[in-house]
Each structure stands twice: as C-alpha cells, then as structure tokens.
C-alpha cells in the first residue's frame, strides 16, 4: 500500500450560488490510478478541476475545504506553482494550434524557467516517448500540431503535461472525443504512467475505470457515495446507489 499523495477534506465547490460538489473527503494513493465515476452532472469534473485550482479560473466560482498535496493545503499556495506540480489533460485535445509538435511540448519548459537547447531537446523526446507518440512523430516534430489525428493530439497533450515534470497527472475524460483504437492506446499509456506518476482520471465509462484504475470513487449529485479498490467497488458495492449505477439502472 502506497502513501496518500493527494487528499481532499470536506471539499465543496460552487458556481455562483450553485453547489456543484458538497463536502467530499477522499484520498488519492501515490503512483496508483484513481478513477472518479458517476453520471453526468455529478460533479466529477468539478472535483478534478479543484485539484489543480483550475475550477477557480472561471468567473464566480468558489472552493471551501482543504486540498492536501503531500500534506500541504494547495489552497494556501500560489496556483501557478500548484499547476506545475499537478498537470492536467482535458476532455478534448487542446494543443496550441499555432505551434509545432515540438513547441507544444517544449512550451511547458519555458514556463518553468530557461533551459538550454540540449536539455529542451532531451525533455521533448523523453516526454513524447512517455506519451507513446515519439515513434509516430520523430521524423516531423516541426510539423503543425494540428496535422496530427485526434488520438495523437491527445497523446501530444499528455506529453506536454509530462514535460513539466508534474507529480500528479489529472485526466478529465481524456478519451471522450476519441475512437476505440485511440482510446485503447491512451488506456495502455495510463497503465504505464502510474509507475512514475500519481494519476487521477475522470471517466463516464465504467469499463474504462475497470480497465485502468486501482481505486475508484463513485460520485452522485455532488456527493461521494463510495470509494474503494476498483474490483471491490464493481463486484461487491457497499451502497445500493453504487450497485444500481454500475448495473446500469440509471446514469
């Protein structure tokens, strides 16, 4: 059993007066994949967006509670520094459209201070390798990012996030815009990534949670219903609501 890398305590998040998640407390173990599942509108995206303080970049949003990274409350820290330690991959691939493949990956290094050309080259290659994209693009890293397919673009976004050398990688439904083949590649990648990173993934796809996650948390109407080892949660759910959801009776 690994230690807990991130932990939220009585976390609530608001959009204006609407409370999207309510007093959630849950831990995310180090170098494991944790999945957050639940029906649309249950607050799973809001929860994950709190973990790198992206939630509060939208107008009229608010967060209450604690979000601990290595025991330190990130709500007390500079969000810019938090986001360098907690990277994120979004639902739709969002490479920088005016940039080449190379620049998309190296841009994260620029935010982290100056690096020599040699270091940057190495980091770009390493990140693209980690994102299982290097073999496909090694001959054309100067091509526009938009010349890649959707699945490749999403792996490019993963490489970009990894280039910043985060400790935690957040993935907000990273496969929802991808076809099954591209989805399988990303899932394989997630299994690799947990050797080096703590991964937290939001998914609306229960099979995906079953395939990639060590732990799964089930959210419903902004509340945490149940959390546990993935196999336990799917095979022996403790809550009636969880059982109803995973057997497809709602959601």
């Amino acid at each position: 059993m690994n230690g807990t890398k991130m932990r939220v305590e009585r976390l609530s998040a608001y959009y204006g007066k609407t409370k999207a998640i309510s007093e959630i407390s849950v831990g995310f173990p180090e170098r494991k994949v944790s999945a957050i599942i639940g029906p649309s509108g249950c607050g799973k995206s809001t929860l994950i967006r709190c973990l790198n303080r992206m939630h509060e970049t939208l107008p009229r949003t608010r967060v209450e509670g604690q979000i601990l990274l290595d025991g330190e409350d990130i709500l007390e820290l500079d969000p810019v520094h938090v986001r360098r330690r907690v990277g994120m991959v979004f639902q739709k691939p969002n490479p920088f459209v005016t940039m080449s493949i190379y620049d998309n990956v190296s841009v994260a290094l620029r935010f982290n201070g100056r690096h020599s050309r040699e270091d940057t080259d190495k980091a770009v290659v390493r990140s693209l390798q980690q994102a299982a994209l290097w073999e496909e693009v090694k001959d054309r890293v100067d091509a526009p990012a938009l010349s890649l397919s959707g699945g490749q673009q999403q792996r490019l976004c993963i490489a970009r996030a990894l280039a910043a050398e985060p400790e935690v990688l957040l993935m907000d439904e990273p496969c929802s815009a991808l076809d099954p083949v591209a989805t399988a590649k990303i899932e394989g990648l997630v299994n690799e990534l947990k050797n080096s990173y703590t991964v937290i993934i939001v998914t609306h796809n229960m099979q995906q949670a079953g395939r990639v996650a060590d732990y799964t948390a089930f959210l419903y109407l902004g509340k945490l219903v149940e959390v546990g080892a993935t196999a336990d949660l799917f095979e022996r759910p403790k809550e009636r609501l969880t059982e109803q959801y995973i057997t497809g009776r709602f959601g």
Partner: peptide, 21 residues
C-alpha cells in the same frame, strides 16, 4: 477558445505567459 487558455494555465503559465503563448 477557453480550452487554449486552460491549456496554458494548466501547465503553470502565469497570466502574462498565457496571454503571450
């Protein structure tokens, strides 16, 4: 698109870096 802005912010870009990049 907001997704471009979020891409930069999520990498730890400051406000100025997000605007510029």
């Amino acid at each position: 698109p907001i997704s471009q802005r979020e891409a930069a912010l999520s990498l730890g870009a400051t406000n100025w870096e997000t605007t510029r990049v």
